[in-house]
Amino acid sequence: MDCTDFTSWLENRDTHDCSEADRALKHAAHCATCKDILQKDEELDLFIAKMFRYQKFDERMYSQVDRTLESSPGKRGIKGGIAAAFAVMAAVAIFFVITPTPGSFSSLSELGQYVALDHKDHGRTLPLYEKIQNIEKWSQDNLNYSFQVNGLPAENMKMVGGRICNIRNCNFAHLLYEDSKDLYSLFVVTKDEIGFSMEPGRIYALTVDGVELRIWQRQEMVYALTG
């Protein structure tokens, strides 16, 4: 190693390995100039390290930080956390309110609109309807649950047939009845598919797009009758 290599090593000691340090120190041992530079550099290094030493720390910092903590995050953090949790819950609630769950209806009028539309579209297309001998068996076979229509609709009506219709991802039994004057649709669905509550036993009457509807709940089922 010559003097140039030595000064290069000295300036870049941190990036060189130990073997080079040995060679550099050997060189310095025999070169007065490099030895002198090495000594000065080490002196400077020690001086810098001394200046970097810890300086007196004001013990009042502890109380200052104490005050900072008192006035801030702990309580705010918890309140903030609770507020954030409520915000999340509210967002979830809003999400469920504004985002229709498959097969659910948010209100009586919404249910009415859908069944009235389906009645208009399919209520007179007789080939769609299959003959039904036993309504309980038919519903069990097609819907995996059974329901009864005893006394529904009026006794003077005759059942034309039934079909399964899907409204908003919800399977309804769509039964078609007729009397001497007209055709009537009866939609039947489980109350679990309805996203609003109805007073049991009460018959709700509404007219949607010229279609008169009667909607009621009996036991586990909800019924909607046109006409």
């Binding site: 810890y54 910092m61 903590l69 702990g74 953090g77 918890i78 956390g81 609770i82 954030a84």
Partner: peptide
Amino acid sequence: VLRRIDKKRFKELTYPHLE
């Protein structure tokens, strides 16, 4: 978000590093 910040523990852990 609901995890309570343990102030005592916070001080125990951090104050030794204040200097």
